[in-house]
Structures are given as structure tokens and as C-alpha cells.
């Protein structure tokens, strides 16, 4: 070879070889599959006996079926989206709060931290369903106990709920709070990765900021809103994205699409459902990212 490559060109080639495995995988498994999914969603897929398949173009009737004919899809999609939207603000503030508590020094901190990280280990499907059952045991026990106690002690939960409503609080707020309380088990379990990320974020805040704030006489309330909160905002976005994706993977929509494909063998409809839900979730993510990234503070 007469022409020798410059250092820059050589570096570019080396860099490409480093990312080559991912690039191949991305092209085959993601780009190729995405196109196939879109093709499936626009056609009638007939599955052959040997596992092959033939497709014939039928336009958007799969999407029509998913949205207008299928009895469950609409409802399940809307419900999961509402659930996600309700959960996000609470999960974020809850995990930030817990991260702040767990970042302070106290006896047995390692132990408490281990408890809060524990749900990461319990995400397997079968383990989840056992946990669900056990949770029902506990909740059932609690509500039975309450029923028995109500006549003797005079404590009536419905009465307190009534007070809340008569306080003149907007009923949306009351509904929000009660729906959160009823799903507290799920929410606490869904926020352990977020807690870890927030703890790491808190530890990366330089101590000198706090010291100077204290010398200037700032109260801890001011320190939180003027230092801690702005410094963790970049991670709030990351946590929101993680929360949305994670809660969506475990939602009923995925299950529905999965069953449609592998028990009813209706590939077209299943692909249409997947695409619809993915578009919905990407829209939500995009809106939230726009909303948050304007308010995000970058230290450097």
C-alpha cells in the first residue's frame, strides 16, 4: 500500500472494530426486527407447519382490530398508562426521600440499605406471583382485623375517609392518595434501583457546597432546595426514564401482546398492539423528557 492512513483514520478504524459486535447485533436484532414488526402489523401472517410463515399485505386493519374490536386492549393500555403516570411522581419523590434518609449515618445503615435494595432480587415472574399472594394474605389479614375491631374500638376507617372528602380537598387528590396507599406494596418494591441511583447521586455532591452553605447560615430546608435538589435533578430524568420503561415491561399490555402471539398465533394483531403501546410509551417519555430537561440544572 502506497498511501498510509493517518493516525486519525487508523483510530477511527480501531474504534469501529471496538463497537463492531454491537453494531452487527443492532442491525440484525433491532433494525431488522423493527422492520419485520412493522411488516407483521400491516399484514396477515399465516404460520406454516414447519415454523415458517407467509405474509400478505392488508393495510391498517390490524390496528383497527386492536383499537376497535379487541375487547381488552384499549382498556388495558389506558389503565397501564394511567398507572404509570400516577406512580412516577410518587416513586421519584419517595426514592429521593429514602435515599436522603439512607445517606445519613446511623447505626445499622448497611442493614436497612440491604432491605431497601432487596426487591431488585425479587423480580422473577414466579417469585412475584408468590409475593403477590403473600401480600394479599397480609392485607386480607389487616382488613379482617379492622372489621373485627371496628365495633369494639369505634375506629372506622370509612369515617376518616369521609372526613378527608368533607375537608373540601379536591376529589382528584383524595383519589390519588387513596390509590397510592392501596398500591404501596408495589410502589415500594418498584423503587429500589431508583434509590440506589439517588444515593450515588447524593454521595457525588461535593461536601464543600454544604460547608459553605452552613457557614452562610442556611437552614436545612434551604440547603435541600438550593443545593441537594438542583444537584440531583440530572438523575431525576434518568430515574423517570428507568421507571417508565421498567413499569411498562411488567405491565399487562406486554402480557396481552405475548398471549395474542403465542396462544392465539395472531402475529399481525400482536405486532400492532406492540407498536401502538410502544408509540404511546415513547410519546410519554418524550413529553416528560422535554418537561424535565428544561428544568434540569447541570453543575459542570
Amino acid at each position: 500500500m502506497n498511501k498510509r492512513l493517518t493516525l486519525k483514520q487508523r483510530n477511527a478504524i480501531v474504534g469501529l472494530t471496538f463497537i463492531l459486535p454491537w453494531l452487527i447485533g443492532f442491525l440484525i436484532y433491532y433494525v431488522g426486527s423493527l422492520f419485520l414488526t412493522i411488516q407483521f402489523s400491516l399484514s396477515k401472517v399465516i404460520i406454516g407447519k414447519t415454523g415458517g410463515y407467509t405474509t400478505s399485505f392488508i393495510g391498517i386493519s390490524n390496528f383497527k382490530n386492536a383499537l376497535l374490536v379487541d375487547p381488552n386492549f384499549n382498556q388495558i393500555l389506558v389503565n397501564s398508562i394511567i398507572d404509570i403516570l400516577i406512580d412516577i411522581p410518587f416513586i421519584i419523590f419517595f426514592s429521593l426521600f429514602i435515599a436522603i434518609l439512607l445517606n445519613q449515618k446511623f447505626k445499622g445503615r448497611a442493614f436497612v440499605r440491604a432491605i431497601f435494595f432487596l426487591p431488585i432480587l425479587l423480580t422473577a415472574g414466579a417469585v412475584q406471583s408468590s409475593l403477590q399472594l403473600a401480600t394479599q394474605h397480609i392485607m386480607g389479614g389487616a382488613s379482617a382485623m379492622m372489621k373485627e375491631l371496628t365495633p369494639s374500638s369505634g375506629v372506622n376507617v370509612n369515617y376518616f375517609l369521609g372526613i378527608f372528602q368533607e375537608l373540601g380537598l379536591p376529589s382528584v387528590l383524595v383519589d390519588y392518595v387513596t390509590s397510592l396507599v392501596s398500591r404501596i406494596f408495589d410502589i415500594v418494591r418498584a423503587s429500589s434501583v431508583q434509590i440506589i441511583i439517588f444515593i450515588a447521586a447524593l454521595q457525588s455532591i461535593p461536601n464543600s457546597l454544604y460547608e459553605s452553605a452552613k457557614i452562610e447560615g442556611a437552614t436545612s430546608y434551604e440547603i435541600f432546595w438550593k443545593i441537594t435538589f438542583p444537584m440531583v435533578t440530572p438523575l431525576i430524568l434518568a430515574n423517570v426514564v428507568y421507571t417508565v420503561v421498567d413499569s411498562f415491561v411488567n405491565s399487562n399490555v406486554v402480557e396481552l401482546a405475548f398471549n395474542e402471539a403465542f396462544t392465539n398465533y395472531n402475529y399481525g394483531l400482536s405486532a400492532a398492539m406492540s407498536i401502538l403501546s410502544t408509540v404511546a410509551i415513547l410519546l410519554i417519555l418524550g413529553l416528560i423528557t422535554l418537561f424535565i430537561s428544561r428544568r434540569t440544572f447541570y453543575y459542570n
Binding site: 440484525i28 423493527l34 415454523g51 420503561v245 415491561v249 400482536s270 417519555l285
Partner: peptide, 15 residues
């Protein structure tokens, strides 16, 4: 990272 995996599950299965 962001794309839910179930979007591509059918083609993967067939692949």
C-alpha cells in the same frame, strides 16, 4: 435502552 423489548419479540422468535 428505551425501546421495550416486546416490540421486537415476534421477529426475534422467528429469527
Amino acid at each position: 435502552i428505551v425501546l421495550p423489548t416486546h416490540t421486537i419479540m415476534l421477529p426475534l422468535y422467528q429469527h
